[in-house]
């Protein structure tokens, strides 16, 4: 049986279209998945770091949405603006204007399940573009409540 290229490509396109119409399914993986695994830090590991000497603490930046930050955020975290917008990245740059390039930085969001987070990958890329070379991203699988608050790790509230 001989199958033409056009037929094969058509079949492939149809499969993609069908997949894209599965109710509730994401048509493509979220950009957070583009972050190298070596640059991820697990919540338990970050919480352990936070219990160590203040001199070794990383700078923790929340790069998600303000309303979620105001409800609760990692103790000592700074709100830097959402990575999904130009205004958010501008705010991130402003927060880091006087920070040394070798500073250890952890960014996080936790607005949604990891594969749907619209913020962390853009913020991660921006930090690398700015020359920061010790950037890690807190891996939050479900959301901030499930992965950070429920296990009892330290939080603060407000702005």
């Amino acid at each position: 049986m001989r199958v033409s290229w056009r037929h094969s490509l058509g079949t492939l396109a149809l499969l993609f279209i069908t997949i894209g119409h599965v109710p509730g399914a994401s048509a493509e993986p979220g950009p957070a998945e583009s972050i190298p695994a070596a640059d991820l830090v697990q919540p338990a590991d970050l919480a352990a770091e936070m219990r160590q000497s203040a001199q070794t603490q990383p700078l923790i930046l929340q790069v998600g949405f303000r309303v979620l930050f105001e409800e609760a955020h990692i103790a000592a975290a700074v709100y830097a603006g959402p990575g999904n917008s130009g205004a958010g990245l501008k705010s991130l740059r402003a927060h880091l204007a006087a920070v040394p390039k070798h500073q250890s930085i952890v960014i996080y969001c936790g607005c949604c399940p990891w594969s749907h987070c619209p913020n962390v990958a853009a913020a991660y890329d921006e930090l690398h573009r700015l020359g920061f070379d010790r950037v890690r991203v807190l891996y939050i699988a479900e959301n901030f409540g499930h992965d950070w608050i429920d296990p009892g790790y330290p939080i603060a509230k407000g702005t």
């Binding site: 309303v67 979620l68 409800e71 936790g110 399940p113 959301n143 409540g145």
Partner: peptide
């Protein structure tokens, strides 16, 4: 945030 807190916290969507 205030409304979210009244419902036990909205810490993810």
């Amino acid at each position: 945030a205030a409304l979210g807190e009244r419902f036990g916290g909205v810490f993810g969507l």
